[in-house]
Design a protein around this nucleic acid. Structure first.
Length: 473
RNA sequence: GGGCGCGUGGCCAAGUGGUUUAAGGCGUGGGCCUGCAAAGCCUAUAUUCGUCGGUUCGAAUCCGACCGCGCCCUCCA
């Protein structure tokens, strides 16, 4: 049996308070995070939520938990409003028509980009990733049973979940079911028994992605059922943490709870965690506003994945985070400071004594902050304190233990870039040449070499004990 | 119209009743170091937490109103 040392306390959206993490199996966490719908490149806002899941997973693994992290890729059924709000469209299908490709090609194309972005952001690949269309059978059998149990009904070829049949509907989002129909949008779909019922299965011969199943011909699933089916097929009724962006609380997660719990009679998830939105320049991010950046957009402006990652995880996940290019520059400087520190630790020649006590207190507070609802900003502050205080104290005594602490920090936050040592020899030679020039007081030549190195992304520092360098790109 | 949440220095961002007369990062001013830089160090930088009231011995932290911002109010609207 696994005995994790980290005892996390997380905020649970459903119970609206902090609770110690309790899982179905001691030392094992099964978590599911709602992934992207791949009709375009996920924006940095989407990435904030994916990286939240990544930090959560890394934290738990670091803390000794065995983690199963699942993430779906939606490739069917996620309908959204058209740009003029006049009708519901399937964005993947629209994109396919626009590009003259099949929906499968569209998904494959964006999937490739998605994984490449995941890599550039140093996000660990979830242990389980799957596309909705791989689980059609699971969805069909779940829907069948919901109909049999009386929670769902068929109408005109479509199958809807009857919201009134599930008493707890609205608990997660705190929406009062009686008030839902008082909103601006009033559903006048007459084939539904209740305007608030949601679709589990649709029939449409014109839909490009469709299946012949025991539910009928030319059908495709509703959006919410995919997550319920995937969770059920992967974890049965043992899901511990279900997470996603705050926009998914309602209707998506509310509907998942209804379906899954009506189906199994058990709680869908022990903890519900939602991360807040990413704002841009203090306001909403949106495609029509021209500020819905993708990672590529950021990289094209000269920033790297590490800088973007740091920017997206540095705020508390339950607090809106304000993104801007200013923030990226800020992150770049902070990261540089951290890199310089790590470099200086590496440069300590004879790190003979291991002063663990000094580092231990920083580690303890780092643990406390991560443990208490993933307080990344506080945890980062602790690391910065360590940097500052170590500098004052002198690096010799603490180098070994500080290095090991920082590598743990990196396990959790994933913010340090690995240094590539391929052309060290050439750099060494250039530095030697420059030092010769300095001895000859040939400042012009020395500065020229320094600029050349800088052009290669090498920053050098002179000190009484010699010249050291590190990569800044 | 309804539900949920937020508003802290030039910027980002912790803190949610008394060890905080508000962490940490970035930026900026001054100093040290340096051939000059870079890096690093020292130092300065919110009597104040959207606004106005209230509760309390005591509030950024609780309550009310107002202002501003964000998410949601469902599938062929």
């Amino acid at each position: 049996m696994n005995k994790p040392w980290l005892k996390p306390i997380f905020f649970d959206t459903l119970r609206a308070d902090l609770f110690p993490l309790k899982t179905h199996e001691e030392g094992v966490v099964r978590m599911y995070h709602c992934g992207p719908t791949l009709y375009s490149c996920p924006t940095i806002g989407n990435w904030r939520s994916f990286l939240f899941s990544d930090v959560l997973r890394r934290t738990l693994e670091w803390g000794g938990w065995k983690v199963f992290q699942a993430m779906n890729i939606t490739d069917v059924g996620h309908m959204r409003e058209s740009d003029d709000s006049s009708l519901k469209i399937d964005p993947i299908q629209e994109k396919a028509k626009e590009k003259g490709l099949s929906p499968w090609d569209i998904v494959a194309r964006y999937e490739k980009q998605f994984f490449s972005d995941m890599d550039s952001l140093n996000m660990k690949k979830p242990t389980h990733m799957s596309k909705a269309t791989k689980h059609i059978d699971d969805m069909v059998s779940m829907i069948r049973e919901l109909v049999d149990k009386g929670y769902a009904y068929e109408s005109n070829g479509n199958i809807y979940f009857s919201v009134k049949s599930f008493k707890k509907y609205g608990n997660l989002s705190k929406n009062l079911i009686e008030k839902l129909d008082l909103g601006h949008r009033i559903d006048i779909n007459s084939e539904k028994r209740d305007a608030r019922d949601f679709a589990l299965w649709k029939t449409d011969p014109k839909h490009l992605m469709k299946w012949d199943t025991e539910l009928g011909c030319d059908g495709f699933p509703g959006w919410h059922i995919e997550c319920s089916a995937m969770v059920n097929s992967l974890f049965g009724d043992k899901l511990d943490i279900h997470s996603g962006g705050e926009d998914l609380v309602f209707p998506h997660h509310e509907c998942e709870i209804a379906q899954s719990e009506a189906f199994s009679g058990k709680k869908l998830a022990g903890h519900w965690m939602h991360c807040r939105f990413l704002l841009v320049d203090g306001g909403k991010m949106g495609k029509s506003l021209g500020n819905a950046y993708t990672p590529s957009d950021i990289y094209n402006r000269g920033f790297n994945g590490s800088e973007l990652r740091y920017s997206l995880i540095r705020g508390h996940y339950r607090q809106p985070l304000n993104f801007s290019f200013e923030l990226l520059k800020d992150s770049r400087s902070a990261l540089k400071r951290l890199h310089n520190f790590v470099q200086d630790l590496d440069d300590v020649k004879e790190a003979n004594s291991h002063n663990h006590d000094f580092v231990q207190k920083y580690k303890d507070s780092f643990v406390d902050f991560m443990q208490k609802d993933l307080d990344v900003p506080q945890a980062i502050a602790v690391v910065m304190d360590l940097v500052k205080d170590s500098r004052k104290k002198g690096l010799d005594d603490i180098a070994v233990s500080a290095k090991s602490f920082l590598s743990e920090v990196n396990e959790v936050l994933g913010i340090f870039v690995k240094q590539d040592s391929s052309d060290n020899q050439k750099i060494k030679e250039m530095i030697e040449e420059r030092n010769k020039a300095r001895d000859d007081k040939d400042w012009k030549k020395a500065d020229c070499i320094r600029d050349e190195l800088l052009g290669l992304g090498i920053q050098i520092k002179d000190s009484s004990s010699g010249t050291t360098w590190n990569k800044i790109k």
